[in-house]
Design a protein around this nucleic acid. Structure first.
Lengths: 217, 217
DNA sequence: ATTCAATTCCTTGTATACAAAACAGTTGAC
DNA sequence: GTCAACTGTTTTGTATACAAGGAATTGAAT
């Protein structure tokens, strides 16, 4: 009843990297990892190859694999891409969303508002994630959704930190309102713009990101 | 001076899959491939894991890896995502493109026009590819560019076929004109819309795609 | 003391051996 | 005759052994 170890290894390594269990450009020692997981080097190597393809680590021939900690520049680029992906999903969702889906979105939005009132950032984060997921669903574009979710996963630790920016949650709620309005009116361009602005890193958010990066060094 | 075989294997397999060297849901036999490349199973397996991560093959535990031939539905979804990615790049490019870059784009456009006049689809395809690459460059968003190029690579065989649609090249040139105009005016929304429309599969293109799919079965 | 070179060790890359699960073919029972 | 269980084969998944290329250390020479 042993379900293939390889998948667990991949997910665990992914998690370890994303949650910053490894230092900046640390080399991922195959032998050490093999011992850690209690397996031989082979499944470790296979997992590392996959991680390399997903962009979390870098393969330097005959040198080893190294964790890629994106710097400020890379992060801004990734957030920019995230903003565009969200905008695209919003663009499509505005054309395809159904009334029940709009109602469900409003319900989730209400939960966000409640979390804000209760001053519970974690709760807010959970519902906010669902809010965006519902937009992906409404877009009915599975490939685009995959791209968005992959990048979202990658940026998760950095997004979460934004919640602690003073006044960010209130602003976020206002943006949700704009998004909902545009979607309910079938306004593609408006939904795209609202979602883009919701994600994009600019102004104070940018400074906060930079400070966080400095702090984690 | 032997440069790691693994990379060549990966690229070759990628090429073989994309160019349809394998049947629909064919199992990629590790031993056969190992013999074909003159290596052991190990590097083959590593390459297959990477291919799995990039979405070209599917890993079924204890069963093997199978090539994923996207069906009509998946292809339409991929083209839709491609259209959105192009739109995003256009959106950013309109804000960031420089005068020299616009000039270069015009030059490439002229080459496309010349290829059209010479009735040379291959030549047109080459310059068209460069046209889009130049827009990616102007967008200055490397992550988005990566996404776009990966998907472009995946869709290459299907895009190429569109060129043989009667009247498609002429229409394409008109669209290039719209894109150029929007970019040169710094019109983000216009550039995005023009690029989206340039790629998206609809109307006759859709029927052509379906016919092609039927023909290749 | 510093620098350069050679040797040693360590790590990655590859091959092979082994284990275990799925598949196919056969045999047997109902 | 059909279906099920068993067995043999094939193929994946994992471990280990070996090869080869870097990195580090030691030693000598300037």
């Amino acid at each position: 009843m042993e379900v293939l170890r390889a998948n667990h290894i991949l997910e665990d390594l992914e998690q370890m990297i994303v949650t910053g269990q490894f230092a900046n450009g640390e080399r991922l020692d195959e032998i050490r990892l093999a011992e850690h997981f209690g397996v031989s080097r082979t499944p470790i190597r296979e997992a590392l190859h996959r991680l390399g393809m997903s962009g979390l680590v870098e393969h330097r021939p005959r040198r080893g694999v190294f964790v890629i900690e994106p710097g400020a520049f890379e992060l801004v680029q990734m957030f920019e891409a995230m903003a565009e992906l969200e905008a695209s999903c919003g663009h499509l969702a505005a054309k395809r969303i159904s009334e029940p889906q709009i109602a469900a979105l409003r319900a989730t939005d209400a939960l966000c508002r409640a979390a804000l009132a209760a001053n519970d950032p974690d709760e807010y984060y959970t519902h906010n994630e669902k809010f965006h997921q519902q937009i992906y669903d409404a877009a009915q574009s599975s490939y685009l959704e995959d791209l968005a979710k992959k990048l979202q996963k990658r940026l998760k630790p950095y997004r979460r930190m934004q919640l602690h920016l003073r006044g960010r949650l209130e602003q976020s709620m206002i943006e949700h309102g704009e998004i909902l309005l545009a979607l309910s009116q079938g306004d593609s361009a408006g939904a795209a713009d609202a979602l883009r602005g919701h994600v994009v890193v600019q102004g104070e958010k940018f400074h906060h990101l930079l400070n966080h990066l400095k702090a984690t060094r």
